[in-house]
Design a protein around this nucleic acid. Structure first.
Lengths: 133, 133
DNA sequence: GTAAAAGTTGACATCGATGTGAAGTTCAAG
DNA sequence: CTTGAACTTCACATCGATGTCAACTTTTAC
């Protein structure tokens, strides 16, 4: 498929898709005319890339990581080098800390919300507060 | 206390502390000579500010939020306006999504780590993988 | 009083994914 | 063949907290 369709189907801008190529994350074939031609499998990959970006990984680390992940089409996945594994463990720890921070901040926010909701509640207000789970 | 001590005690750079003042997050008194003079309570506040930054809130939102939080010294906390509460609920939802994303990514990372550890394990390697909790 | 340490303001730099706009090319449909 | 949509490359802009450097002032210690 061409870049426009991939963008539509993943919700990622064409600008970003080209950037991913630049970073070596997703290198498509080219049509005779020079346009990008992505395989069906690119959709999943783009989504995975976005997830890893969301986790705070940088392009370079993602580029190293991707070949070590089993693709949906089951290509042979490379084995991470000890060097990469060490990096990933560092990242995992960072993510763990981040999750803890977020849970903590969420609690803080929620407390303010609950306080305000209690103190300003009007008859008919919905008093439900979503559970933390 | 002066800015250097506050920086040392919170682990936040003096640059950032001045920036917080600029954003109206933490406005200290001044000594006759013009130097910043922070109350003891500033330590807690700086930490809280950092937590909120870590949660992805921007200065402006934090500035609105801070007066609504009960201080350690128990000053009277303002009640959040309905407008702010709506914003905070949006932020809380965003944080919830972010937490879910992170947990997901953590799992992905962990899988690669576990796979590599299994496939490259040497006699004597520590096979423990920290639990997700 | 003098020097060093710590403070002040102001300006400019950084990082990295993404937005945006220009100028030109390819593709698809009439 | 022609037209417009979709694509190409290239360049520059953005956002926001923080780093960094310069020139100057205040505080502290001797």
């Amino acid at each position: 498929m061409r870049i426009g369709e991939l963008a539509r189907r993943t919700g990622v801008s064409t600008r970003s898709l080209r950037y991913y190529e630049d970073q070596g994350l997703l290198v498509p074939d080219r049509t005779p005319g020079g346009q990008r031609d992505y395989p069906e499998q690119a959709v999943d990959r783009v989504i995975r890339i976005q997830e890893l970006y969301a986790a705070g990984l940088h392009s370079k680390k993602i580029a190293e990581l991707l070949p070590c992940m089993r693709d949906a089409d089951g290509g042979p996945s490379e084995i991470a080098t000890p060097r990469l594994v060490a990096d990933l463990i560092t990242e995992r720890d960072r993510i763990d800390r981040k999750i803890n921070d977020l849970v903590n901040s969420r609690e803080i926010l929620d407390q303010v919300i609950r306080t305000a909701s209690r103190d300003t509640a009007q008859p008919g207000d919905d008093l439900q507060t979503p559970s933390t789970s």
